[in-house]
Design a binder for these strands. Structure first.
Lengths: 248, 248
DNA sequence: GTCGATTTGTGCGTATGTATT
DNA sequence: AAATACATACGCACAAATCGA
């Protein structure tokens, strides 16, 4: 079905997890479509050159994640598939981007506080000093968590951003309430790392999962920075597109 | 020094490896600068709430990787640091992008072959059918591997792309040799996943490491697709920037 | 409906790796 | 350094569910 696989022993990563990661990768890369029947456990065991129990551990982990589904006597099937695409351009709005791909999106305020601006935040927002509003949010698409984010705003400019976000679930709305009718994406930095414990919880991921981290600066129509944010996307559910035609 | 840490037990990833991954992440995220002295093993052990032996396993692994350097009686120090930034815009050239950040870059041809175009390749290159040249390359910056890539070209248009790349280590040069003086980035898709065995080998990563996957289409000045590529970047050494000001 | 073949689910014994004390 | 506990991986055997002949 797919190409030969390789396992590294004594690497600190259990063999069952390496196998689970490879299978999950194949599925999210589109090599294994939704509903596809996986090879029998014994065949996979010989292919990976491991014991059948080890394959079963990998399958058990992926079943728990909801990626695979095993049926006694019938086989094991791909239960999940297809990634969302998050298209980044100058006008980047969470719900609008996903609106053609899912039925509904939701933004939830997890926490908020007023704080002295950390150095990177102050630099990004072009503030010499002063207080910022920090909000921690998470976002779901059709009920599935896809991302969580931390965003900072100049407290002097948008003092009620947290309350306005809580009631609407929308940054666009919260900024409108502060008199900012439009905003544009100035820059985006993309990195990837393993999810931290809190992210695992919010995004319902399992240890070892990957998050795409988008660090963004949004500016108003006059080019003044109004928002600095770090959004963590579940990398197995979503990919980021950059369309150079429409980006500029 | 840095924030509190979290460890997940029975996740299939050994605790020493989770700790090693976190420390490596902190270093490449810039939280721990080059040459910084790490806290004593006992202090780290209490902070992570694990035994000192476990910390020592993590340090031993990072020392083997060349990320840390332990000196008996003095302490453990950061031997490595700072991520590269790969800036994606309309005119995306590997060596040029990194030229301000490193002394030298190199492109190495790993393999090449002529093949019938797979469906996604044919679609991206706007070919109904026909043969493509596929080249597998890897790229180093100051001798350190940062990425490996697979690229496809229309065999009718650039028949000698593999040989020209081999001699020059440059896509720009290889396309010039085929009469294509300029090309632009049309679209880029960014995803993240665990590195596969071959990538671990080429990029000198350890199991569980993350790669950023950039799937790109380059077009000539008339807008005809000429190159379809999938580049895998070592996520702990590099991040991707999208500058919306200059992207369009 | 029965039978055999296939496939997943379960149990047990053993050896090694991991983590703590 | 050693003793302990548990997780991981293997090998063998058998039970339970599914499917087609």
């Amino acid at each position: 079905m797919t190409s030969a696989r390789f396992i590294t022993r004594n690497s600190g990563v259990a063999i069952w997890r390496q196998i689970a990661d490879q299978i999950r990768g194949d599925i999210s890369a589109g090599k294994l479509a939704n509903g596809t029947r996986m090879p029998p456990e014994i065949e996979m065991a010989t292919r990976f050159a491991v014991n059948r129990h080890t394959i079963r551990s990998a399958i058990a982990a992926l079943t728990k994640e909801g990626v695979l589904r095993a049926e006694q006597g019938r086989g094991t099937f791909v239960a999940n598939s297809k990634k969302l695409t998050y298209r980044i351009g100058q006008r980047t709005r969470f719900s609008q981007i996903l609106s053609t791909q899912v039925r509904e999106t939701r933004g939830i305020l997890l926490a908020h506080r007023r704080e002295e601006a950390p150095v990177d935040v102050a630099e990004a927002l072009n503030m010499l000093s002063g207080e910022v509003i920090r909000i921690d949010t998470m976002h779901t698409a059709d009920g599935n968590p896809v991302s969580c984010a931390t965003a900072w705003f100049d407290a002097a400019r948008v003092p009620n951003v947290a309350e306005d976000y809580r009631s609407s679930g929308s940054i666009t709305f919260a900024l409108k309430a502060a008199g900012i009718d439009d905003y544009l994406r100035k820059s985006t930095l993309i990195a990837a790392r393993h999810a931290e414990a809190e992210e695992l919880r919010h995004l319902k991921l399992s240890p070892g999962a990957i998050v795409l981290v988008a660090t963004a600066i949004n500016v108003d129509t006059e080019g003044h920075p109004i928002q600095y944010s770090k959004t963590r996307f579940a990398a197995d559910r979503l990919e980021i597109a950059i369309d150079n035609d429409s980006a500029g």
